[in-house]
Write a protein that binds this DNA or RNA. Structure first.
Lengths: 253, 253
DNA sequence: CCTTGACTGCTTGTCAGACAAGTATACCGT
DNA sequence: ACGGTATACTTGTCTGACAAGCAGTCAAGG
């Protein structure tokens, strides 16, 4: 039975607008998940079992499960299989990115605002990272820098872009602040499509990619040298410079 | 008929794992929404009509609608009514905030990291705002500051908290960068519960609230004076000071 | 003319039951 | 012990049904 204890009708003349059962069930399950009662990786019982546990029909359970999957708290939903959905948190970030992308594409947020935010955030993250860079993140960044070089010589813009995104994420991850990594991950994912458009529309790809690689090297060098100030300014110049030169391609004015 | 044209099986030996129809339908509808074919405020057709348009059964349509509601792209879902869900973007931010809150409560992000992020972000936003503060935002901030004073004298911690949150949002909104407002809104919503706990646990509420009001006044003054540097440093001190003194209450270590 | 009331649809929320396709498991023969 | 089959179970989807609420419509009565 779903507890319907919520919302005591404070104003007696307003009819009690209870939420649909499916939403109530999803909230209860959500609470079980985020409160840790159902640890990450737990496989949920079958829909029939949930039917009995919550005292509602399978349709209702299924709607609740869809809600939780959309919120990123349950795996699955992307493929049809008999595998039971698992409690997961990987898709939560993806869900947040999806939300941000929706706001973006609905035209509520100009790209320039988003870029300004990214400059501030990434600058701060790198400044923080420079004080004590994680060695494995630095190593990963170096690998991705190599990948960028190869992609540039091969003229593979898409591969370059992938490595580029990875590089920035790795650099931000070199600091140990999870919040930076999270928000910047979302930001990047939302901006990525614009960026790829801009790269694809380049008149002289080789020259631009070469310059970008140089700027990446400078950023990496500054962080390795522990010079947070320089890292911040260089990443700022790197991002703003690119958007000033090639940012108009994507379309968002 | 839902177009199943996506994902041409590139590797013929991997069985084509198509996504459930409900997910496909939700993606199509999502695309219609974010691409602007269905403008904000549009009321969706009835479920039966959608049934015919997409060539799937009502159960499938309903699951798709639940997904879109969870993503914040459709209104409704919180109350049961015959009103058709409307295309909306207000709930998208809420959805992002929900995702962030989930990550937080799952223990993936320490509160200190989040606070550090907020300091950087809010500092940058206020520095930006100081260069050209929106007068109506400033007026709103002043009203909320008054509300804080009244709440403090009345000893109403909850009201103080509400006004506090509103003040910070108004100040950030004084700059015209939508991205700052968006992300900080999400951040605040995620932090809010910790903050309220901390306020409720104060040993000497009156003194602390008084000090907070003073700090808020200083921040407002700096922005009005156009001194971005001072605004950034003051809001930084304001946030870090509070969390250093009272931040342990919420529980997240 | 305006209000009131009943009636008729239509919509959502929920349930029960059915079936296909795929998978896991148990069981059985070698 | 091992391989292969049969069975049970799971998810995805459809169909049909019913209660409750809301929007009209339309006639009766003031």
């Amino acid at each position: 039975m779903v507890s319907t204890s919520a919302s005591p009708s404070l104003s007696p003349f307003e009819p009690v607008r209870r939420a649909p059962l499916s939403v109530l069930v999803s909230r209860q399950m959500r609470e079980l998940i985020v409160s840790g009662v159902l640890p990450l990786g737990t496989a949920l019982p079958s829909e029939k079992a949930l039917t009995e546990q919550f005292g509602v029909s399978r349709s209702t359970i299924r709607e609740a499960l869809r809600i939780l999957q959309a919120q990123g708290l349950l795996s699955g939903g992307d493929t049809v299989s008999t595998a039971r959905p698992q409690v997961s948190d990987r898709h939560v970030v993806e869900s947040a990115a999806l939300a941000l992308e929706a706001v973006l594409r609905l035209g509520q947020v100009p790209l320039t605002d988003l870029v300004a935010l990214r400059v501030v955030l990434e600058g701060a993250a790198l400044e923080h990272a420079a004080s004590d860079p994680g060695p494995e993140a630095i190593a990963e960044a170096r690998v991705l820098l190599d990948a960028m070089r190869h992609a540039a010589t091969a003229g593979d813009v898409a591969a370059f872009h992938t490595a580029d995104v990875g590089f920035h994420i790795a650099m931000v991850g070199a600091g140990d602040n999870v919040a930076y990594r999270l928000v910047l991950g979302v930001l990047r994912e939302a901006i990525a499509v614009h960026l790829l458009d801009a790269l694809a529309d380049l008149a002289e790809p080789a020259a631009v990619l070469g310059q970008l690689i140089g700027e990446h090297e400078a950023v990496l060098g500054a962080v390795e040298a522990g010079d947070g100030h320089a890292a911040r300014h260089q990443v700022r110049a790197h991002i703003l410079g690119f958007y000033a030169a090639h940012g108009q391609a994507g379309g968002t004015p």
